[in-house]
Design a protein around this nucleic acid. Structure first.
Lengths: 196, 196
DNA sequence: GTATAACACATACATGGTGTATGTGAGATG
DNA sequence: CATCTCACATACACCATGTATGTGTTATAC
């Protein structure tokens, strides 16, 4: 591990940085990236825009940091859930379930799935999403279908990626998310079955 | 048909409105909604922002008009393609093929699929997309699967909607879009098969 | 045909948000 | 205790948007 001897100043710095991240997560999730101004965000954190520009590359930089935190945590949760299983399909199923659960978290749903493309643009968004979650999906599909399947892997990945994301949003809006998750999993299973 | 007797003034008005729409389509598709300012857009059309605000509700209003034109044309093309077929699956297949082809049009892809959510926000975007294309998909799926299928129709629709959109983007980026379209259709067919 | 009205669009201004350059005070260093 | 450092605040310049107002051209009335 690195040094954990923190000088007083370092602790101050860490706390303002954390305050910015916390305010960012809250404001961006509640009101959206464009509808919240950097000024009111930092004021809610008891700071000024000077602090924001010191720690991050402006409002967008802060958003990216919040975004990456959420994505990293999501990737962690999914890989953990998958690591507990052995059978390929059970494993994939566990990963999908974990993903659907994560998307029920309002912060993740709002910031990563909905605000992400708006704040970062599609290109940057895909870049980051691919970095954190892309390989998980690609590897999972490859293991499950075999890269010699009847369909090009790139297309299959795209189709399931789109289906999963859209399902996640629908599931999150359902009255009974737990039941909807089960139904979604069943549906995905059916789609898989048709590809062999 | 309605009156086609146009006074000179009406023709002028129509031409400036058309100029705004054309410039909007071009600029928004080429550089994105946020990266183009209303000022440079109207200047390229030989006008001022006064004209823009007179005809539309600002930059966003113009975007919405451009957006709706593209969506209306897309809906038209899809329904026409579907009307030529009788068999349910052939019919649906023709609709999907038409959709994938439309998404190969850079203007549609950029403005409707990519810039749409950014410029309008997800809520308004869904509202409009649902109005133009939503019923086509929902009805098609209902006819194909029967609303008494083993999976809730809402989830099935969401899954195929997401898969189709994502496939459309992938197909549009392929080196050989025509071949990729065929492969995508085959893939969708497989997914359908698994749901019966 | 001229006077008047209407309207399409241009001009001018106010506002708010962002990015940057500069200032400053608390805490680290010797 | 003196000096330096740097985390953050302050101040300013710059766009972009929205609105209020002006103006010229076309239509209308007599």
């Amino acid at each position: 591990m690195a040094e954990q001897v923190k000088t007083r100043r370092e602790r101050y710095v860490a706390s303002t940085r954390a305050a910015l991240l916390e305010a960012g997560r809250r404001f961006f999730a509640d009101r959206g990236f464009t509808d919240v101004s950097a000024e009111e965000l930092v004021r809610a954190a008891g700071l000024t825009r000077g602090a924001l520009y010191h720690h991050f590359a402006g409002k967008q930089g802060l958003f990216e940091a919040v975004f990456e935190d959420l994505e990293a945590e999501a990737a962690e949760r999914i890989t953990t859930a998958m690591a507990a299983e052995d059978d390929p399909w059970t494993r994939t199923s566990a990963g999908i379930r974990a993903f659907l659960e994560i998307c029920s978290d309002p912060a993740y749903r709002e910031i990563v799935l909905l605000q992400g493309p708006i704040a970062l643009g599609w290109q940057r968004w895909r870049e980051l999403d691919q970095r954190y979650l892309g390989t998980i999906l690609t590897d999972g599909l490859a293991a499950l279908l075999g890269d010699t399947g009847p369909h090009p892997l790139a297309l299959t990945t795209a189709a399931f990626y789109g289906a999963l994301t859209e399902l996640a949003l629908t599931v999150a809006d359902a009255q009974d998310p737990t039941q909807a998750r089960d139904q979604a999993l069943h549906l995905i299973g059916g789609m898989f079955a048709g590809l062999r």
